[in-house]
């Protein structure tokens, strides 16, 4: 099988020693199996996510993503831009669409880019890594690569917000997207289709500045997973993963609950099913260990 090449925008949280470094580890593991080549955009910068707006106006924010698109055109020509982080994908795709639809913004952005010695055509499709998996590789091929089916593991698919709205994965609904259920089932696990917090918000960046309000949202996301008998929550989003995993102790203190629910990336789940080791799968990045996956990866 020939390798598929993509221009990769990893994002700040994916870096070594950052909060979603375990996501990167597991993405690399499944790319190895699926012959996907991610070519990092050289010298990429932050997209300003969805909280930069207090300091950065519309044009400076769009210019941030435009710089990444320009670098991608220059260094990885002809390759689709692919992001694994929901916010990175959203900001970059939003930029490419806004600039395509607004000539004035596009002209102004190009003037700003010139200061960094860059030019922009703005013709590159911006895609989420999940789209590469389900559109370019396909569910059948994803399933065919399974070495250790995740039989009997019950999974609540937590899609969250920004992988789902406002763009979402093509062909999926905003209210009940099914791709994550299909992915987990392709790995041999049981998708709990009655999980009713699939597209609920975890508070996003406001988990930092409005912790108690956000933790109330997270509590409901966790409780719903227990209600349907989940062994673990699976998510594609770095902010969702961190928020839903790391605040369980504080929520337990405040609400007298007893949550201890593993929250793993879909890519970690897939890496284990593809026979990768615990460390290759990013399992040692779990603050709350996913014991069933640890056992399977160690076998």
């Amino acid at each position: 099988m020939a390798k598929r090449d993509y221009s990769f925008y990893p994002g700040c949280s994916s870096q070594k020693g950052a909060s979603a470094s375990n996501c990167t580890t597991s993405i690399n593991a499944i790319c190895d199996v699926l012959k996907i080549q991610l070519n990092e955009i050289p010298d990429w910068n932050c997209c300003s996510a969805s909280i930069g707006y207090a300091g950065g106006g519309e044009l400076p924010r769009l210019t941030l993503s435009a710089r990444n698109l320009a670098l991608s055109e220059q260094h990885n020509p002809g390759q689709d831009v692919v992001a694994t982080c929901a916010a990175c994908w959203l900001a970059t795709r939003e930029t490419t669409e806004r600039l395509a639809h607004d000539d004035q913004l596009f002209t102004e952005t190009k003037i700003a880019l010139k200061e960094a010695g860059l030019t922009l055509q703005n013709k590159t499709p911006v895609r989420h890594f999940v789209e590469v998996l389900i559109e370019d590789v396909g569910y059948d091929a994803l399933k065919a690569a399974v070495k250790k089916p995740l039989t009997g593991i019950k999974i609540a698919s937590y899609v969250g917000c920004q992988t789902n709205r406002p763009f979402g994965i093509a062909g999926e609904s905003f209210e009940n997207p099914l791709y994550l259920d299909k992915l987990t089932e392709a790995m041999g696990a049981t998708a709990l289709k009655d999980y009713d917090k699939k597209v609920a918000c975890c508070g996003g960046a406001l988990a930092f500045s409005e912790p108690e309000k956000s933790q109330d949202l997270i509590k409901d996301i966790l409780q719903a997973a227990y209600d349907v008998g989940a062994d673990m929550i699976v998510t594609p989003c770095p902010v969702c993963q961190m928020n839903v995993e790391v605040y369980q102790g504080l929520i337990n203190q405040r609400h007298g609950t007893n949550f201890n629910m593993p929250v793993v990336y879909y890519s970690t789940l897939m890496a284990v099913a593809y026979g990768k080791s615990a460390s290759e799968s990013g399992l040692d990045g779990q603050v709350i260990r996913a014991k069933q996956l640890d056992a399977l990866a160690g076998r």
Partner: peptide, 26 residues
């Protein structure tokens, strides 16, 4: 922008943080 809640100030810090090195220092 109001002084409380802290989100306006936090959001400003996020922007200041990312513009120093080009990437967020968590």
């Amino acid at each position: 922008a109001p002084q409380t809640p802290i989100t306006p100030r936090f959001a400003q810090k996020f922007w200041d943080n990312l513009t120093v090195t080009g990437r967020v220092n968590e």
